[in-house]
Computed example of a mutant assay.
Amino acid sequence: MTEHDYTISLNYQHRIRFTRNAFDEGNRMLARLLQTNGRAKVLIFLEDSVAEAFPKLEGEMQEYFSSTPGLELKRIIVAPGAEICKRDEKVLHSVWDAVNEEKIDRHSYIFAIGGGAFLDVIGFGAATSHRGVRLVRFPTTTLSQDDSGVGVKNGINAFGKKNWLGSFAVPYAVVNDFAFLHTQPENVRRDGLVEAVKVALVRDGAFFDWLEDNVQLLAMLKPHALEEAVERSAILHAEHIAQGGDPFELGSSRPLDYGHWSAHKLEQLTDFALTHAQAVSIGVGLDTLYSWRTGRLSENDAKRVLALLDGLKLPLYHECFESKNVNGRRVIFDGLEEFREHLGGELTVLLLRDVGQGEDVHHMDEALLEYCMQMLKKYSAATTADERERVFG
């Protein structure tokens, strides 16, 4: 018997671009970005809400490609987005059907223009067509521009669980077009800032300080502040993926999923009436209090985190925390096992030791978590600074 082990090293270029009005005839960023080899086909998937908000966009894209040598626009397909597209396989199948019908190959491009859920589904379709068609993501929401859109994960929900079916695939490029950002509803623009808070907490204390200093501007959604927060957050997320040593999550540590073990479960328990961003805000609040109560994070820093989330008008509590099974155990705790199961191996949850510094733990005390949930409930109901201060005793 003989054994042979080989190391296969793959190098990916993760291209992140920030621009405005990418399809304006005077903006040639895309023309420089795409490799055409003389002629490349482009298939565009456009989320229906974006098409509605930008009624001239389809015409602008058609005109752009007609004046760009080497690129052939095959079709623009408007499809449903939001969380429902991750639970209905019709959108995924529409990708495969269009790739087949338009004879899209691995030297072609699929453009996905929409929010994070839409990018997940179109990206999964691109990654599984011909074992991988080049994907260009155009995130359109705060949440997708500052976090998920610059990631390397794709997927759809299955078996009642988030992203159970999916793939890791580095997109050919991510184009954050700020022209999309400011047309979103206020709550969508604001909610997405939670991922900026999260990545600052786990990677960059100075960025957290900046978020605190600019909380009023961000709460009012002032464009210059919102764009800077989005760009700094996106870069931190991309740097962690590219330089953190585990882009495809082969290990058990997931620092960018701080606060997410309960967030994913909260989404399920509310049948996704609670958005991902809102659920993450609550999850970040919970794990921050737990970090403090376990002696890792200072009380002052825990207060800073809750104050920032509150200042950004993000939620900190949901009644689903109270849901219990027939044995009297809180249903939210099922999220811990689902979080572990998603990667396999032992449970690994990131907690905070400092603003900008995390620590992996492998056990969560459910009784202490219940205490922290009650603290969040009281904090969320408080209407004055004195009442919030009394929550901490």
Score class of each variant (00 low, 15 high):
residue 183 T to G: 01
residue 183 T to P: 00
residue 183 T to L: 08
residue 185 P to A: 09
residue 185 P to G: 09
residue 187 N to V: 10
residue 187 N to E: 08
residue 188 V to P: 13
residue 188 V to H: 12
residue 188 V to L: 15
residue 189 R to V: 05
residue 190 R to Q: 07
residue 190 R to M: 05
residue 191 D to V: 12
residue 191 D to A: 15
residue 194 V to W: 00
residue 194 V to H: 01
residue 196 A to E: 03
residue 196 A to V: 08
residue 197 V to L: 06
residue 199 V to P: 07
residue 199 V to H: 04
residue 200 A to D: 13
residue 201 L to K: 01
residue 201 L to R: 02
residue 202 V to S: 07
residue 202 V to R: 09
residue 202 V to K: 09
residue 204 D to H: 04
residue 204 D to E: 05
residue 205 G to P: 03
residue 205 G to K: 03
residue 206 A to M: 02
residue 207 F to C: 04
residue 207 F to E: 03
residue 207 F to K: 00
residue 207 F to D: 01
residue 209 D to F: 11
residue 209 D to Q: 12
residue 209 D to W: 11
residue 210 W to A: 14
residue 210 W to E: 10
residue 210 W to D: 12
residue 210 W to P: 08
residue 211 L to P: 07
residue 214 N to S: 13
residue 214 N to R: 14
residue 216 Q to S: 15
residue 217 L to Q: 05
residue 218 L to E: 09
residue 218 L to N: 08
residue 218 L to G: 11
residue 218 L to D: 07
residue 221 L to P: 03
residue 223 P to V: 07
residue 224 H to S: 07
residue 224 H to Y: 03
residue 224 H to C: 04
residue 225 A to K: 11
residue 226 L to H: 14
residue 226 L to I: 15
residue 227 E to K: 12
residue 229 A to L: 12
residue 229 A to V: 12
residue 229 A to N: 06
residue 231 E to V: 04
residue 233 S to N: 03
residue 234 A to H: 04
residue 235 I to A: 10
residue 235 I to M: 15
residue 235 I to Q: 08
residue 237 H to A: 10
residue 239 E to P: 01
residue 240 H to Q: 12
residue 241 I to F: 05
residue 242 A to M: 06
residue 243 Q to L: 11
residue 243 Q to D: 07
residue 243 Q to N: 11
residue 244 G to E: 13
residue 246 D to C: 01
residue 248 F to D: 13
residue 249 E to W: 12
residue 249 E to R: 08
residue 250 L to C: 12
residue 250 L to N: 14
residue 252 S to H: 10
residue 252 S to E: 11
residue 252 S to F: 13
residue 252 S to D: 11
residue 253 S to N: 06
residue 254 R to I: 00
residue 255 P to A: 11
residue 256 L to G: 06
residue 257 D to Q: 14
residue 257 D to A: 06
residue 257 D to S: 06
residue 258 Y to A: 03
residue 259 G to V: 00
residue 259 G to H: 00
residue 261 W to R: 01
residue 262 S to T: 14
residue 264 H to N: 05
residue 265 K to W: 05
residue 265 K to D: 06
residue 266 L to S: 03
residue 266 L to T: 03
residue 267 E to Q: 02
residue 269 L to G: 10
residue 271 D to Y: 13
residue 271 D to Q: 08
residue 272 F to V: 00
residue 272 F to G: 00
residue 274 L to N: 03
residue 275 T to S: 15
residue 276 H to R: 12
residue 278 Q to G: 10
residue 278 Q to K: 06
residue 279 A to I: 09
residue 279 A to P: 11
residue 279 A to M: 12
residue 280 V to C: 07
residue 280 V to D: 13
residue 280 V to G: 08
residue 281 S to A: 13
residue 281 S to W: 01
residue 281 S to Y: 03
residue 281 S to P: 08
residue 281 S to C: 05
residue 282 I to W: 10
residue 282 I to Q: 09
residue 282 I to C: 05
residue 283 G to N: 04
residue 283 G to S: 03
residue 285 G to I: 04
residue 286 L to D: 06
residue 286 L to I: 09
residue 287 D to L: 15
residue 287 D to N: 15
residue 288 T to A: 01
residue 289 L to S: 15
residue 289 L to V: 07
residue 289 L to G: 15
residue 290 Y to R: 07
